[in-house]
Design a protein around this nucleic acid. Sequence first.
DNA 1: TGACAAGTGGAGTAGCGACTCCGTATTTTC
DNA 2: GAAAATACGGAGTCGCTACTCCACTTGTCA
Lengths: 198, 198
Amino acid sequence: MTTSPSGRPLRADALRNRAKVLAAAEDVFAEQGTSASTEEVARRAGVGIGTVFRHFPTKESLLEAVLVALLERLAGEARELASAPDPGEAFYRFFARVVSQAATKQALTEALAEAGVDARRATGRTGPDVRDAIGALLEPAQRAGAVRPDIGPAEVTALLAGISYAAGRAGGSDDVLRIAFDGLRPQDATTDQEAARR
Amino acid sequence: MTTSPSGRPLRADALRNRAKVLAAAEDVFAEQGTSASTEEVARRAGVGIGTVFRHFPTKESLLEAVLVALLERLAGEARELASAPDPGEAFYRFFARVVSQAATKQALTEALAEAGVDARRATGRTGPDVRDAIGALLEPAQRAGAVRPDIGPAEVTALLAGISYAAGRAGGSDDVLRIAFDGLRPQDATTDQEAARR
DNA sequence: TGACAAGTGGAGTAGCGACTCCGTATTTTC
DNA sequence: GAAAATACGGAGTCGCTACTCCACTTGTCA
């Protein structure tokens, strides 16, 4: 992404501006949600609208770049924690961290939801990345008996999105997080049937 | 809401149209989310745009009416189930039903989130209504030992919104629901500390 | 049944947001 | 230090959407 269509490397100022736009877009979308206007992004970045559209030809592509950046950062954090001594603690710490970040960043919640199960074009390569990173955190925690064994990265991602949503819009995020944590722990012989369904 | 500004009762056709518009709006917003256009609502209702705006002077007021209707129906269902013989089953059945409905109705998830903690003007009277109805379902379930005692209606509502969001956008709603249920059950002496936080 | 109030429909208005275009400015290259 | 290539900025275009206005229709009441 640092070369122009003709194969040549981007000019220095262009590179700088690209970064400024991306950073501004992250801020703006985090604060106002993905419906914030492109003009606001340009203003925040201190560039003209034309520049924004030169680097990201549609609003969607800008959004995609932001989401990918967020997810990559997430995957990075997960990978980092994966080498911690206590796998259970690492997993729950990661979960809590993501939720607390998402509470103030609408865009993160949306990114999580999109990465959820359907790997759309937007997050085509990053979705699996995130899933793998979460898997690397989840499996050791399961082996250590800190997390129930009957779920996979997809369920964790979905739950992450849901709890983030709840934490962001409603209050009481701590309580909701506690409930989620308890549900994630291994459930002892409670054979429950709960015929509950429509 | 069935009288004109001048205090007289609404004309028969006006009453009919009002109902048609409300029904169409519920459908449209459920399918396309709250950003669907007012014109689409009018088309679906088989009336002119002018008529929609006569009954609901702003789009926001239309949205509000739809959300209130959804929440009232929810509260109604909760009250109905409250008299079931097994309080635990009633509670979990209600929870599952809401989530499965919300999966196909974006508007419901948004309504839940809004009803969450801050009683905005939109759902000013209905928010508490829902909370009370959920409370009437929750407390007996807690007394029966089917639901952990350390949470209240607010937490349940928040969780409901979060799980609905997860179920609607990602797949694997069943697994996520299972996790939530397990987290909602009384947690035996697991004094856990989970120093997990930022 | 006729007169008047109430309601309807949809063309029109206003404003916003995504995206384009091109004269000007900045880099790079030789 | 020019010339050529590249990038910039922002006024302008286009389409969409909430909302208004009013000539016309329908319901109500005596």
